[in-house]
């Protein structure tokens, strides 16, 4: 793997980013507007200007959900922009490998995610006084764990897009939302039916958001949940990578890879 080529993929995503209003809107506008809605709903539920404990859980969920959404979206949309430009194949007739391309997209996604989380956190602090800084040194740990989960989902979605072609592009911004109701983002998964709790146990987000709420709302550091999440992150990334390699092999054999840029 060449660090030099990864740097050029990062530069490529930057050049694209500065010229793409759509990406700005998707990443910063949508995340901020969604957060505003959650803040005002939280205030409505609390019946006043303060958001209350449940409201704080909702807002924390939305602030940190942006790390998952932006990270995942960037991995897949980075490839889709190339496919739509008919330039995906052009990249891979250079010495660039799929792994270098993906790592470039992951790093780029991580940077955008961090910016999205920072903006969301500032908006949340400004409107509610809720400060994620109180999470201390665990804050980057939580963000990293959520990003790692987003990369795992991103790899799986990219594998699906490779298999199904650009007709499946909408998966890029929709599939991750399957995680929201079952992944403990806004509420503890104990409210879910038993069968769904078993599904929730497979998502790292379940443990990360539980740990964030426990630390922020109750002052309890749940290191067990943090470790469980880290282990599951590794499994999701590994499964995503295997799915991507299988999809790549299949599309290279069937000829579909060459048609991804048509």
């Amino acid at each position: 793997m060449s660090a030099n080529r990864i740097v050029y993929i990062l530069l490529h995503t930057w050049y694209h980013f500065i010229h793409s209003m759509e990406t700005w809107v998707d990443i910063f506008w949508n995340t901020t507007v969604n957060l505003l809605i959650f803040i005002f709903i939280a205030k409505l539920i609390a019946g006043g200007s303060a958001v209350g404990v449940e409201g704080a859980g909702l807002i924390l969920g939305m602030v940190f959900w942006n790390a998952v959404w932006v990270g995942q979206y960037n991995v897949t949309i980075g490839a889709l922009w190339e496919m739509w430009s008919k330039s995906f194949n052009t990249l891979f007739i250079t010495p660039l490998t799929m792994e270098e391309f993906i790592v470039g997209q992951m790093i780029s996604g991580a940077l955008k995610s961090i910016i999205a989380v920072v903006i969301s956190a500032l908006v949340a602090y400004w409107l509610t006084g809720l400060s994620v800084i109180t999470l201390g040194w665990m804050l980057p740990v939580y963000v990293f764990e959520l990003l790692a989960f987003s990369w795992g989902i991103g790899l799986m979605v990219l594998a699906l897009i490779m298999r199904l072609g650009t007709d499946a592009a909408s998966l890029s911004w929709s599939l991750v939302f399957l995680v929201q109701p079952f992944g403990g983002v806004f509420y503890a998964v104990t409210v879910l039916p038993d069968a769904l709790q078993k599904i929730a146990a497979l998502f790292p987000s379940t443990y990360i958001f539980a740990a964030i709420r426990a630390q922020y709302l109750d002052g309890v550091l749940e290191t067990g949940n943090t470790w469980r999440a880290l282990g599951l992150d590794a499994v999701w990334i590994l499964l995503g990578y295997i799915a991507l390699r299988l999809a790549l092999r299949q599309t290279l054999t069937s000829g579909a890879f060459a048609r991804l840029s048509e």
Binding site: R5, Y8, H12, Y15, W84, K86, S87, I93, S261
Partner: peptide
């Protein structure tokens, strides 16, 4: 791949990036 190259109407470069930036990226990749 480092020593060969290809040009075709069906293998383009990123459309939302300038010509110079595109060439800079490919120069970097090679």
């Amino acid at each position: 791949l480092a020593r060969i190259n290809f040009a075709s109407s069906y293998a383009q470069v990123q459309s939302k990036v300038t010509v110079r930036q595109n060439l800079l990226i490919y120069a970097g990749l090679y």
